[in-house]
């Protein structure tokens, strides 16, 4: 009873929730294992191998979590906007579900980036929060995530929620660079001399390696979690269809 128009395109074959559901189920554990292994290697590199920083001491090690989280939070928003655009252009239901599944993870990374930034800022800057351009735009990005999640949850009709969320994600994506540059502009006008992240001391190769591996771990984690979340979203959306009924029976999840 899926209502997807049948098309010859290979891409659209997996755009049908029914075909994507088992694929996501197979892929998610792979990425989860990958994430765990990469995170283990990355953390080992960052906490035991990477040398202590000459100026900042041990506290700098938070960047191994902070920087990948900040990268990921921005990147996830772009991916959300991409799926939103796909959903609007091709009217594929799965695209909106992907965007929705990504939002909480993006917000989580955004929050982690802010939190670890504050922990780093306290000993380095002497304050948990300074109105630094990066911190401020990260905070605004968190608000954009909250707005997206709040809007899609507030709309009861799931399809309307998908489409309204897609429009919002695109409007937000257009505004993200504007926000970033305006905050940077404002920041240079208001506080000339503060410790800037851009002036980080040149990094040792092990530091860079640790950071990249942590970034890859964040990627794998995001993909795994998004796939699992999209699976439950699919079940929820299509719960009245025959194939979901059969699937629930197979899992013994239906009395």
């Amino acid at each position: 009873m899926t209502m997807q128009p049948s098309r010859g395109f290979h891409f659209f074959h997996f755009a049908a929730p029914q075909t994507f559901y088992p694929l996501a189920g197979r892929l998610a554990p792979v990425f989860a294992v990958l994430a765990a292994v990469l995170a283990a290697i990355g953390l080992w590199l960052s906490f035991f191998v990477a040398p202590t920083d000459a100026t900042q001491g041990e506290v700098y090690r938070v960047i191994f979590i902070h920087v990948p989280a900040a990268w990921m939070s921005m990147f996830v928003y772009l991916v959300m906007a991409f799926w939103s655009a796909m959903g609007i252009i091709f009217n594929t239901r799965l695209s909106a579900l992907m965007a929705r599944a990504l939002a909480p993870t993006g917000a989580m990374f955004c929050f982690v980036a802010l939190w670890t930034g504050a922990l780093w800022g306290r000993p380095t800057w002497g304050a948990y929060w300074v109105w630094d351009a990066r911190l401020t735009s990260q905070l605004l990005l968190l608000f954009l995530y909250f707005g997206y999640i709040a809007l899609t949850e507030a709309i009861e009709d799931p399809r309307r929620g998908d489409r309204a969320g897609a429009i919002l994600a695109l409007v937000g994506a257009v505004n993200v660079p504007v926000i970033y540059f305006s905050v940077k502009w404002w920041n240079t006008l208001h506080q000339g001399a503060s410790v800037s992240l851009t002036k980080a001391p040149s990094m040792a190769t092990t530091m860079l390696g640790g950071m990249l591996i942590m970034a890859l771990a964040a990627w794998a984690y995001t993909i795994a979690v998004a796939l699992w979340r999209v699976r439950s979203l699919i079940l929820e959306r299509e719960r009245h269809t025959d194939w979901v009924g059969a699937e629930l029976d197979r899992q013994g999840a239906r009395p």
Partner: peptide, 30 residues
């Protein structure tokens, strides 16, 4: 338009648009 007809639409509207208003505030007051 996005929040039309939603319960608690006013608060939601603030959450949606205020972050987008920040650049205008920066350049306007600036």
């Amino acid at each position: 338009a996005l929040t039309l007809g939603l319960r608690g639409g006013g608060m939601l509207l603030a959450l949606l648009v205020l972050p987008l208003f920040v650049p205008i505030l920066i350049f306007g007051a600036g």
